[in-house]
Simulated assay, not measured.
Amino acid sequence: MHKNNQTMKQGDRLLKMPGKLDRGPIEFKSRIAGSEGEVMGIATRGVISVPQTMTIIGAVETMTAYGFRRLPITDAGTHRLRGIMTARDIIDFLGGGDRFNLVRVKHGGNLLSAINESVREVMTQRVTTMPHTATIAGAAEIIVTKKIGGLPIVDEEEALAGIVTERDVMKALATEDTDVTVEEVMSTGLRVTGPDTPIGSVTREMITHGFRRLPLVSDDVLFGIISASDIMKYLGSGEIFTRLSTGDVAEVMGLPVRTLTGAELYTTTPNTNINDAALKMLQKGVGALPVIEEGKLIGLITEFDLVKAFYEE
C-alpha cells in the first residue's frame, strides 16, 4: 500500500511539472501546399488487412507478427474499409475501458473464450481516412489536429489503397534543417506509474487519460517505458497464455507491469536538435524518447510531438 501511495505521489508531482517553453497555438501555414497525391509517395501500399470475421486473437497475432500498431478491417471481396483495430483497442479490451465488458460480462472474465470473438466486436468503426489524392501537409494536419497515429488511404471506390502513419510523416518532414530543440516541443507535466503497478491498472490509466505510453519511475529513477503496443504484444506473442492457468483475465492482468519491459531504453536530452531526435527514433524503431536532464526525467518527446513541430516550422 505504501509503495502504491508513493507511486501516486510521484505521478502527481510530475503532472504539475510546468513546461519550460510555450510555442503557442498551432498555425498551419499555407506555404506548405504540397502536390496532389504526394501522400502515396510516403504511404505503405499493399496494406495487410483482415475481414470482420477474423477472431480477435488472430488479428492481434497478425499485428504482433508484423509489428503493426493498427490493422485495417476490410470486406474480403471489395476491400472496402469497415474499421480499424489499434493497440489502444486491445488494451481497452484487456481491461482498460468499455471493450472489457466483452470479457468481463459476456464471457464471465474468461479471456480464453473472449479472444475467439470476431474482431468486429472490438474494432474502431468510425475511421478517419484520407483520399489517395491527398498531400503530405494534409496528412500532417489531420494527425496533429485529430491526434490520430495512422490514416488509412482510400480510392474512389472507398477501397483501401494504403496507410500513412505519424512515423511516415515525421520522416518526410524531418528532411528540412531546423534549430528547434527537444526542450521546445517535448511533452511535460507527465503522468507516470511505478514498475510494480499491475498491468490492468496501466491499461485503465492509458484509456482514461488517452495515453499510448507511460514512463515507469521508481524513487525518482526512470525504470523504463511501457506502451500500448507492449501490452498488445503480451497477448499477441502468446506470453500471456504461459501465465494463464485458470483462464481468468485477472490472473494475467494483475502481474506487475515491469514483467513486460525488457527492451533497451533509449533517451534524449533537452538540448538535442529535433532532427537528431527524429533520426534516433527512426533508427531505433521507437515512437518516443524520455528526456533526461541531470539523471532525472523531465519530459517525453513522441512522434506526434515531432510531426507537430516540423509542420509548424
Rank of each mutant, 00 (worst) to 15 (best):
M1S: 11
T7K: 00
G11M: 15
R13V: 10
P18Y: 10
L21T: 14
I26D: 14
E27P: 00
F28S: 05
F28Q: 04
G34H: 12
G37P: 11
I42L: 14
T44Y: 04
G46P: 04
Q52M: 12
M54S: 13
E61A: 13
T62A: 13
T64P: 03
Y66K: 14
G67H: 12
G67Q: 12
L71G: 03
G77E: 15
H79A: 11
T86R: 05
A87I: 02
R88S: 11
D89T: 08
I90R: 01
G96D: 04
G97S: 08
V103E: 01
K106F: 14
G109I: 07
L112M: 13
S113K: 14
V119F: 05
E121A: 14
V127F: 10
M130H: 03
H132P: 00
H132G: 02
K147A: 13
G150L: 09
E157L: 11
E166Q: 13
R167I: 06
D168C: 09
M170K: 05
A172R: 04
L173C: 03
D177F: 13
V180W: 09
T181N: 04
T181V: 12
E183T: 02
E184K: 13
M186G: 02
T193R: 08
G194L: 07
P195V: 04
P195S: 10
D196Y: 11
S201F: 07
E205S: 09
I207N: 01
I207C: 03
R213H: 12
L214T: 00
L216Y: 07
D219P: 01
V221R: 15
F223S: 05
F223T: 08
I231F: 09
S237H: 08
S237T: 15
I240H: 03
F241R: 02
F241I: 04
V249M: 10
L255N: 01
T259E: 15
G262E: 11
A263R: 15
P270W: 04
P270G: 06
A277V: 01
M281H: 06
G285Y: 09
G285I: 07
G287Q: 02
A288P: 02
V291R: 03
L297E: 05
G299N: 03
T302Y: 04
F304V: 00
L306P: 02
K308H: 12
A309Y: 08
E312G: 15
E313P: 00
